[in-house]
Amino acid sequence: MPAISRDEVAHLAGLARIEMNDAELDRMAGQLDVILGAVAQVREVAGDDVPATSHPMPLVNVTRPDVPRPGLSAEQALAGAPAQQEQRFRVPRILEED
């Protein structure tokens, strides 16, 4: 039985907001199945007593004094926008139609 089905790939593509046609889903499901088969061994390596490591070096929280400092101007921030209006990012509708 494959580790991942075509339907699962379709569901994941939806979650990741990537449109995929049937041919792409077929190919992706086959390739991901091979990759998952190869990485599945991680489940067998470490015992329950081994702690997880999320980060290679010790992390400390970083803060700075709460004083204003210059940032990007509105023009700079909007310079790469696909669409803009009244000094704001113009986006497609975010609500369902009535």
Partner: peptide, 15 residues
């Protein structure tokens, strides 16, 4: 847990 969690434990072993 099975995938990401296990991979992070392997990371500890590699260190």
């Amino acid at each position: 847990d099975a995938y990401y969690g296990s991979a992070q434990k392997v990371r500890t072993l590699i260190q």
